[in-house]
Write a protein that binds this DNA or RNA. Structure first.
Length: 575
RNA sequence: CGGGUAGUAGCGCAGGGGCUAGCGCACUUGGUUCGGGACCAAGGGGUCGGAGGUUCAAAUCCUCUCUGCCCGACCA
């Protein structure tokens, strides 16, 4: 590609709002351009990189036996009604009616469409297992897109769907994905870790997320440096200490102005672990069959030295969604914010008690009368409720496996794998006959990688003051040829030779000063820069500089192609 | 959806009732320069986000509204 003909241009200054480096450079280097909130154009350079990533993904997916398909972005609402997700998913899924008044949706994922394909194609165990994948557009009307390509509304995703006759088969294909994903990210050059995760709206039990650890991430990952235990904070467990004792009778005590645990502890001169903390949420419960919604107040109770993890609370309560409760709602259920506890709450309130509180005795808890707390409250005596782990793991807490301190870090989710089981196949009647003639639901899995987000993470991982420096496996071109000589004949010849040899070259043939060309080369960040200058040329040489290391050497023009080939090979990230 | 912040040239910004709306970069033309964002000269480019209002006069004041970004809520 000649830079004199390149569609995009570089920007000297970062557009306002480019808050992280990777995003800033993708904009400034002319890889992407914003169209609206969460909507981005891929310019030629960015699209080249995306194609490279997709090629790696295809290669690795086909290697584990996946067959590429393409499902429509627009789905009839019917199949989403079959699984209930038409009702359970809120405004994040966009809906419309076609000219015949038929309900349609823009697919935010393709479990329904894939299951529909499966039920048409699979009737016997002889046609199992099967694995399909696609690289396709998703639309998710996220309320708050941010950080460039990290969180967008329209994006490209590689999603695969597995069909198996038994759990053993599912586990095998799951493991294949687990490994393939590491090869994919490895070949792209992105360091990731796999963490145990919440299955969220996907349903199913076993799930992993692939996290790129970075401060720009929105997920919190809990990790044990000692034994390697790693999980998303949404599901991370930790080792809790309990404080059981002989239960005493509860006792009302005036605690004016002591609304928080801190104030309470200071007032009563006690420690946080001697108290119980209540969090009030309103959960929405949706009938999957008809879409009818019901709101219920949920009280989450943890010991005062911990916090409630809302994802855990939502799962324990089996709520479809959670939001903080309004003061009036809390009071309507017979409780008082700031002095709240499940003691004496109205029937119909869902009470979830963390085991930390349930297994500790004589805690100070709210009395539900403003200005008063109870001393010596005990689970099973003063209040009841479902006991579950709803406490949030945090930095310094103890590992559930080896009891050493845990560490918390931020990460971006670039991929996920789910064992779906039969949630979709049962709901959508995707059954097969086994060897004995018994009809069984197909066992499914689903597996995703956000392609654009992967590029965003790579841009974040690979940049310096000068701009981008993507690995050669995903950079838009392999070689950036900069001509500084007046007579273009030699550089033209080199350009032709490299291209003829199948090397991908961005050729700066513009009439710009050396400084401008170098600055553009730096920001675009092609891994190998070849500079043809008058000095070198006289000796029959060309300067070769590596973007990442800055390492510079002069190569003979004679045999340049094979030299560059070898160099590209040596720079290629390994899985 | 709440809180904050900003919309003036392609990008970054200044101007805050008054005459022709400005600066840097980018762009065009001519000349000089030519290995790290060159220099000189001459140019082109604007519904000041939109609508309504106040006023002799609005980019500027008022009302409404749209959009972007940040924090939160939300999120595979």
């Amino acid at each position: 590609m000649r830079m004199s003909e390149l569609f995009s241009k570089t920007l000297r200054e970062a557009p306002t709002g480019a808050d992280c480096k990777g995003y800033e450079y993708l904009l400034r280097a002319g890889y992407i351009q914003q169209l609206a909130a969460g909507l981005f154009d891929l310019l030629p350079l960015g699209f080249k990189s995306i194609h490279k990533i997709e090629a790696i993904v295809r290669d690795e997916m086909e290697r584990i036996g996946a067959q590429e398909v393409l499902m429509p972005l627009v789905n009839p609402a019917d199949i989403w009604k079959e699984t209930g997700r038409f009702y359970s998913i809120d405004k994040e899924m966009s809906r419309f009616v076609d000219r015949n008044e038929r309900d349609m949706v823009l697919a935010m994922t393709h479990e329904e469409a894939a299951t529909d394909m499966g039920r048409a194609q699979i009737e016997s165990y002889k046609r199992l297992p099967r694995l399909i994948f696609q690289i396709q557009t998703k639309w998710r009307d996220d309320p708050r897109p941010r950080a460039g390509l990290i969180r967008v509304r329209e994006f490209t995703m590689k999603d695969s769907y597995s069909f198996d006759k038994d759990q053993e088969g599912l586990e095998k294909v799951y493991k294949n994905h687990y490994d393939a994903y590491f090869r994919i990210f490895g070949r792209c050059g992105l360091p990731v870790i796999a963490v145990g995760s919440d299955s969220g709206m996907m349903g199913g039990k076993v799930a992993h997320e692939y996290m790129y650890l970075s401060p720009i991430g929105e997920d919190t990952i809990i990790n044990c440096p000692a034994c390697g235990y790693t999980a998303n904070r949404q599901v991370a467990t930790f080792s809790k200490t309990y404080y059981p004792a002989e239960p005493k009778a509860k006792e009302l005590v005036a605690t004016p102005e002591a609304k928080t645990i801190e104030e309470l502890c200071a007032f009563l001169n006690i420690k946080p672990e001697q108290t119980a903390k209540a969090l009030f949420m309103v959960g929405t419960f949706i009938n999957d069959q008809n879409g009818e919604e019901e709101d219920k107040l949920i009280v989450g109770l943890v010991r005062g030295d911990m916090d409630v993890e809302e994802s855990k609370l939502q799962n324990a309560a089996r709520a479809n969604s959670l939001r903080p409760a309004h003061v009036e709602e809390i009071q309507a259920a017979g409780m008082e914010p700031g002095f709240g506890s499940p003691i004496g709450c109205k029937k119909g309130t869902i009470v979830i008690v963390d085991d930390s509180a349930a297994k500790s005795s004589n805690l100070v808890a709210g009395s539900n009368k403003a200005g008063f707390h109870y001393l010596n409250t005990n689970y099973g005596v003063d209040y009841d409720g479902q006991v579950a782990d709803i406490a949030s793991a945090a930095d310094g807490y103890l590992c559930p496996v080896c009891h050493k301190p845990l560490r918390a870090s931020k990460g971006v989710e670039v991929g996920n794998i789910f064992q779906l089981g039969t949630r979709y196949s049962e709901a959508m009647n995707c059954y097969f006959q086994d060897e004995t003639g018994v009809r069984k639901p197909v066992i499914m899995g689903s597996y995703g990688i956000g392609i654009g987000r992967l590029l965003a993470c790579l841009a974040e991982q690979y940049n310096d003051e000068g701009g981008l420096k993507l690995p050669v496996s995903v950079a838009p071109y392999q070689v950036h040829l900069v001509s500084l000589v007046k007579d273009a004949a030699t550089s033209e010849r080199i350009y032709e030779e490299l291209q003829a040899a199948g090397i991908e070259v961005l050729y700066d043939d513009r009439a710009e000063s050396a400084g401008v060309k170098f600055a553009d080369a730096d920001i675009i960040g092609i891994p190998i820069r070849l500079t043809l200058g008058n000095r070198c040329l006289k000796e029959g040489k060309i300067e070769c500089r590596l973007r990442t290391s800055g390492q510079t050497s002069n190569l003979e023009l004679e045999g340049l192609v094979s030299e560059i080939r070898a160099l590209i090979e040596s720079l290629m990230p390994r899985a």
